[in-house]
């Protein structure tokens, strides 16, 4: 229902790998940081910690709500910091992995983005964080393993 809700962002992709392989990239810290963030602390069970440091200032924090091996991961998501509209655990990210002939279909639904909060005086904090995030990802080395390949300095 309501896939185009204003508080929701949906991203999908197809990965040529088995669901169990993809699943591990959401639950094992050393694999998680191969696609997102510099450091990760993950305790993938309901109530367990989700903590990913995208960089030194962008600290994603939440709690795992649901973990079904190889098919589904749900965690709350927000940013650590005093001026964050989306505080730790404020929104929810649902990841669904579906086996298909080509490998795995990944559907990521990020919901609970508070429109009213984003609209208020806090929004610049959110915006700047996202800007930094975008810069850290798209501006960084897109190599799959930032730990094995230290960031290049210009």
């Amino acid at each position: 229902m309501g896939v185009s809700e204003i508080d929701t962002v949906i991203c999908e992709t197809v990965i040529a790998a088995q669901p169990e392989t993809v699943f591990a990239f959401f639950t094992e810290p050393e694999l998680y940081t191969r696609w997102m963030g510099a450091r990760a602390r993950l305790d993938p069970r309901p109530g367990g910690t989700y903590a990913v440091d995208i960089n030194q200032v962008a600290l994603a924090r939440g709690t795992f709500l649901e973990v079904i091996p190889h098919s589904r991961v749900v965690f709350t998501f927000g940013w650590e910091g005093d001026d964050q509209p989306l505080g730790p655990g404020a929104s929810t990210v649902e990841v669904t992995l579906t086996p298909i002939a080509a490998g795995t279909h990944v559907r990521l639904v990020h919901r609970g983005l508070r429109v009213s909060e984003v609209r208020d005086q806090h929004r610049e904090g959110w915006q700047l964080y996202l800007g930094r995030l975008g810069a850290s990802i798209s501006g960084g080395d897109p190599g799959p393993d930032p730990n094995a390949n230290p960031p290049r300095e210009e």
Partner: peptide
């Protein structure tokens, strides 16, 4: 997700 794809396919 694009980076996840690369990393997971490499792993596979």
């Amino acid at each position: 997700l694009a980076q996840l794809k690369d990393a997971a396919e490499d792993q596979q």
